[in-house]
Simulated assay, not measured.
Amino acid sequence: MNEAVQQLTHVLPLPASCGQSKDWNEVSRAVGTELPADYKQFIETFGGGYVDQHLWVLEPGCANEHYDLITGIKHGDEALEGLWELVEKPRELASGGRLIVWATTDNGEIGYWLARPGQSPEQWTVMVNDESGTVWEHFDMGFARFLLSALDRDIVSEVLSYAFPKDPHGFEPSGDFV
């Protein structure tokens, strides 16, 4: 298991109905790319859910379409197309690449993977965008390391709410919100 995912099992409470096996080949077909192993391990360990009453980690196949990864990516791609007509792309996209949604918040912030040309999903880093679509942060780390570092306050996002993270940490499965 990925070290950061393993550490997250000690930081976040594991819900009674945690994790689900997924057909990752089918998910990859629907998304149009493989996904990072740490994300897949997180979903199989925790499932998608609400972290510290702020950050929704999206899950493929979630019964609630608002927290479904595939639906989120589709809506995210459409929203970005419109956004690029209004604002300049972040400099991290200057050499191409794709932003792939993996999280949302109740405030409208969005967590993305930055998938650059020629990179494997294990090399993707994290970008966070504010609700206006104009402020971007780049974190040179993958999904699980980002989540762990944010919860441990090893990194601080200027975009995510000041109320994130909470103490003690919480995790509520998306399935509880169907």
Score class of each variant (00 low, 15 high):
Ser21Gln: 14
Ser21Leu: 15
Lys22Asp: 05
Lys22Phe: 13
Lys22Gln: 15
Asp23Lys: 01
Trp24Tyr: 09
Glu26Gln: 13
Val27Trp: 04
Val27Asp: 04
Val27Gly: 03
Val27Cys: 09
Ser28Val: 06
Ser28Gly: 15
Ser28Pro: 09
Ser28Met: 06
Ala30Tyr: 10
Ala30Leu: 11
Val31Ser: 05
Val31Ala: 09
Val31Lys: 00
Val31Asp: 03
Gly32Tyr: 09
Thr33Glu: 12
Pro36Gln: 01
Pro36Thr: 05
Ala37Met: 12
Ala37Ile: 13
Asp38Val: 03
Asp38Glu: 13
Tyr39Trp: 08
Phe42Leu: 08
Phe42Cys: 09
Phe42Ser: 03
Phe42Asn: 04
Ile43Pro: 06
Ile43Trp: 03
Ile43Asn: 01
Glu44Arg: 00
Glu44Phe: 05
Glu44Asn: 03
Phe46Glu: 08
Phe46Leu: 03
Phe46Trp: 05
Phe46Ser: 10
Gly48Asp: 07
Gly48His: 00
Gly48Asn: 03
Gly49Val: 04
Asp52Asn: 15
Gln53Pro: 02
His54Val: 01
Trp56Lys: 04
Val57Thr: 01
Val57Ser: 09
Leu58Trp: 05
Glu59Gly: 09
Glu59Lys: 02
Glu59Asn: 04
Pro60Leu: 09
Gly61Gln: 10
Gly61Ser: 07
Gly61Lys: 03
Cys62Ile: 07
Cys62Gly: 12
Ala63Gly: 14
Asn64Met: 03
Asn64Val: 05
Glu65Thr: 13
Glu65Trp: 00
His66Gly: 05
His66Lys: 15
His66Ala: 14
Leu69Ser: 12
Ile70Met: 00
Thr71Ser: 10
Gly72Asn: 05
Ile73Cys: 04
Ile73Tyr: 01
His75Lys: 11
Asp77Glu: 14
Glu78Trp: 00
Ala79Ile: 09
Ala79Gln: 11
Glu81Val: 12
Glu81Tyr: 04
Leu83Val: 03
Val87Asp: 11
Lys89Asn: 07
Lys89Gly: 10
Lys89Leu: 05
Lys89Thr: 14
Arg91Trp: 14
Arg91Tyr: 14
Glu92His: 10
Leu93Asp: 07
Ala94Asp: 15
Ala94Pro: 04
Ala94Leu: 10
Ala94Cys: 08
Gly96Asp: 05
Gly96Glu: 10
Arg98Ser: 14
Ile100Thr: 13
Ile100Phe: 04
Ile100Gly: 01
Val101Asn: 02
Trp102Thr: 07
Ala103Thr: 04
Ala103Trp: 04
Thr104Val: 12
